[in-house]
Each structure stands twice: as C-alpha cells, then as structure tokens.
Simulated scan of single mutants.
Amino acid sequence: MSRALPKFSDLPLNKGDPPHSAWGVYGSDDELGTINRLTDDVVMRAKEEIQRGVRISLNLPLNAQRGSMLVGRSKFHMDQYNKAPRIVNDDVWTFNSQTSTQWDGLRHYAYQKEAKFYNGVTLDDIFGENRTLVNGIQAWEEKGIVGRGVLLDFDRWRRANNVEYRPLVGNRDAITLDHLKAVARSQGTEIKFGDILIIRTGFTVAYNKLTDDEITQMMSVPVNGGQASGVEQSDAMLEWLWDSFSAVASDNPTFERWPSTTANLNHEILLSGWGMPIGEWFNLENLADHCEKVGRWSFFVASEVCNVPGAVARYICSRSITKT
C-alpha cells in the first residue's frame, strides 16, 4: 500500500484539484480515505501490540465540557424518567456530536475557497434536492478505525526539555514537526505505515484545573473566531502525515494551531484532501501514565462509533490495548 501511494510532492493528482489533495487515489467514488490504509495485513500486524491485555478508554464523558461551550455547540443534556406504574426507567440524550471525544468526518470541513469536500463532494450533494449520504460517517462504521496506535506524549517531553507551550484555547503556540520527531526519539517509538497517530498536548490537564468562571472567560471568544494552540501547518508536517498515518488525533479541541499561518488549514487538506480522520478531545491521561510506566508508547486501538448514516462527526467508543 505505501509503495503504491503517490509522493506528497506529486499532490494534487489532477489539474485543477485543490492544494495537496489526493482525490482519486483510492477511486473516484471512495468514501474511506486513508482508512483504506488499514488493510487486513496492517491490522493483523497491529495485534502483535497486545501482550498484557490492559484496556484503557480514550473517551471523555459526554458532559466533559463545562461553562461556556466551545464554538457555540450545544451542551450534553440527559432526561431520565420512570415509566410508572412499572419499575422501569428510560432516558433521552441530546448532544452535539462534537462536544466531547470524537472523530471529524468527511462532511465536516471543506476546502473553503473551492467549497468542496473529499473527492469533490459539494454542499448540494449534502443538502440539495437530490441529496445523498455520500461521505457520511457510515462509510467508516463498517470496519471501524482499528490498528496500531502510537502516542507522542508532547506535554511530558516539553516539560522535561523546558519547551514553552500554552495548551489552552486563547493561545496560538505551535507543535512543530521537529518537536514530534524529538518526542518519538526520546520515547524510542518507531513510526510504521498505517499507524494511528495520537498526540498528547496537555490540554485536558490544563482545562480540568480551571474554575467554571475561568472556562467561561476562556470560551467567551469561540475557537472559530479566536485562536488555539496545536499542530503546526507546514508542507513538512503534511508530508510526514501523508507518508505515515491512517488517522490522527489529539487531546485538544482543534488538533492544529488555529487559525492557520499558511494558505490552507490542516483540516482542509487532511479531511477533504485525503479523507484522513481527525480525532479531537481524546482522553489520554491514563494512557500516557501507563505508557510511561511500562516504557512503551505503541498499542492496539479499536474505535467503534454510532452508526448514523450521513452524519458529519461521531462520538467514539474507543479502547486502546497496550503492548508491554
């Protein structure tokens, strides 16, 4: 699979396609994107990571956000009720699919200038008179996101090396490619083709230390109108991601630094250019502590989700099983 991929320098593949896009590399009607890299052979090799069978959840609670909500999304709400006269209870949940741990799907963020999603899908394809379910999350649901995960614990590394980084929303610090490669070297972590990259920025720890009033103040300017720290935008970073990974994720709400310092956002290129899932708000504290304890930062990841045809994003039900 990796040998058949075009080089990053060859992107876009077709004249007139958006910058760095790989439309058609898996077929003109493909809806899996880089999940195609998780072949049976890649997944079978990933199971070698399971030695102790330790299971660690990557999910935050659905009500993890407190105070004002990020980017204006609705809070999680639950109604519970007794179905009297029987001793039977039911409940109803109402929530935005991106208010907690989730994967951005291929309907989420288009190339803004071209107004096109992965493989050229348009808003009319999604909302028009002849709308379809194209690029909905149901395409990923059939087999899930399953494979070898690698945790790059940037927060632990940068504290040990006195690297300044402010993880909370309202800052605009960058995690560079040099940073991530240094983290991998310090951990002794080998990157393999098809890996699921998970980056711990320290956002969750910093967020959980805030009071409700501090959270409200921080969220008073939403991310899409303000700024956030995260992975840098650069051709070097994009080439590294393209060459290696099937999906990327982090513990912060944007994955990348926001807004971009280049012509394009990583969201545009990863989601709409390559069909690469972007995970956000992952719960990485227990995983990071366990990896540090056993001295291994690679593991088996199984991510299963709600099957909602045509949906934009999805709350995950993930577990990682570490190899020690």
Rank of each mutant, 00 (worst) to 15 (best):
A4W: 13
W23P: 00
Y26L: 13
G27V: 09
S28N: 15
G33N: 00
T34Y: 11
N36V: 02
L38H: 04
V43I: 14
A46E: 10
K47Q: 11
I50A: 03
I50R: 08
Q51C: 14
G53Q: 10
V54I: 11
I56A: 05
L60C: 00
Q65H: 05
R66G: 09
H77G: 12
N82T: 14
K83A: 14
I87V: 13
V88M: 13
D90M: 09
V92S: 13
F95L: 15
Q98V: 11
S100Q: 00
L106D: 02
A115R: 14
A115S: 15
Y118M: 09
G120L: 04
G120E: 09
T122S: 05
D124H: 05
I126L: 14
G128A: 07
R131Y: 11
T132C: 01
V134I: 11
N135K: 00
I137K: 12
Q138L: 12
Q138R: 04
W140E: 04
V146Y: 04
R148A: 07
V150Q: 08
V150L: 09
D153E: 02
F154P: 04
R158W: 03
R158P: 03
R158F: 07
N161Y: 03
Y165G: 01
Y165T: 10
L168W: 00
N171Q: 08
R172G: 12
L177I: 02
T189M: 04
E190M: 09
I198Q: 01
I198V: 15
I198D: 06
G202T: 03
V205R: 14
V205Y: 11
Y207C: 06
D213S: 14
Q217N: 12
Q217W: 07
M219Q: 12
S220A: 01
N224G: 09
G225P: 07
A228G: 04
A228T: 05
D235R: 08
A236V: 08
F245A: 13
A247T: 06
A247M: 07
V248W: 02
A249T: 05
T254H: 08
W258Y: 10
S260G: 01
A263C: 06
N264K: 06
N266A: 10
N266C: 00
H267L: 12
H267Q: 11
E268L: 02
L271D: 02
W274E: 04
I278L: 05
E280T: 12
F282N: 01
N283Y: 03
S298Y: 07
V301Q: 07
E304Q: 13
V305W: 08
V308R: 09
V312C: 06
Y315T: 14
I316K: 09
I316R: 01
S318Y: 05
S318W: 00
K323S: 15
